[in-house]
Design a protein around this nucleic acid. Structure first.
Length: 256
DNA sequence: AACCAGGACGTGA
DNA sequence: TCACGTCATGGT
């Protein structure tokens, strides 16, 4: 990742054509966050837990991250697990999703055919900790069915968006982390940060914020993966309570 | 004890 | 288009 970081710093000045040049700001933010927090090791996988998922009651020390290693997913089941996690984490904290994934793993069902073999009731009970279990049960099964019919192909973003329960963020998460496609992920944290820094208008929609990053960064998988994870880490520290927005160190980094 | 978490969707204006 | 209600468990 170090080379990517240096590469980013080197290209920091390169005027975009037309609109205001936000490239330096977008790159400065990345460098600042990376220097502060280091590589984040997204997307987390249950296999990488030290206990292999044997201790589901643990509530602290979330594991499964692989900082600096961009070779994941390495198997079809890992790819599948990322897709499941992307759906389950909608408006839900990751710790809850982790419990759901471990429940599935302990049912020996954390793989496509395994999920499909579960009854609605058992599946519903397994993913309960992740919330919205009624709709997520239905959506997860249809997502799994779609995945089994994919047969190794890389889906188009539009195709993902047609799936029930897959909106823009989930689609981009699946593309970026499961299929290694450079598609920038925008979540509510990202929105809070860029609006607080006044890089976009308050009412900017998803695609506008997505474009802000994609148009001002090299189209690089590792940068995209790391940037999103860093924004989440940063937001957990400064963007949970509105009162702390003003304490965001990035405010001093961007001069307008 | 409200409030929010790594959203998406259906509805009515 | 867009603001708003709904879905649901579990943490602070």
């Amino acid at each position: 990742m170090r080379s990517k970081t240096e590469n980013l710093k080197k290209n920091a000045q390169n005027p975009g054509s037309g609109k205001s040049d936000l490239r330096p700001a977008i790159r400065k933010i990345f460098n600042c966050l990376f220097d502060s927090y280091g590589p984040q090791g997204w997307w987390p996988l249950t296999e990488l837990h030290e206990d292999g998922g044997a201790n589901p009651t643990k509530t602290s020390s979330v594991q499964g991250y692989h900082p600096g290693d961009y070779t994941y997913p390495q198997t079809r089941d890992q790819q599948f697990e990322i897709i499941c996690g992307a759906l389950l984490t909608q408006n839900t904290s990751w710790i809850q999703v982790e419990k759901a994934l471990l429940n599935l793993k302990h049912l020996n069902a954390l793989y496509p055919e395994g999920i499909l073999s579960l009854s609605q009731d058992v599946l519903k009970e397994a993913i309960k900790p992740a919330g919205y279990y009624n709709q997520k049960t239905i959506r997860l099964k249809s997502l799994v069915l779609w995945f089994t019919e994919l047969e190794g192909n890389i889906p188009a973003r539009e195709e993902l968006l047609h799936l029930k329960g897959v909106g823009p963020e989930t689609a981009d998460s699946i593309l970026l982390y499961a299929f290694k496609q450079p598609s920038f992920v925008v979540d509510s944290y990202t929105r809070r940060i860029v609006t607080n820094l006044r890089l976009v208008d308050e009412r900017a929609d998803y695609s506008e914020i997505k474009a802000l990053f994609e148009e001002n960064l090299p189209k690089d998988l590792e940068v995209y993966q790391e940037y999103h994870a860093l924004l989440v880490e940063h937001a957990k520290r400064y963007y949970q309570k509105k009162s702390s927005y003003t304490k965001c160190p990035l405010l001093g980094l961007i001069q307008d």
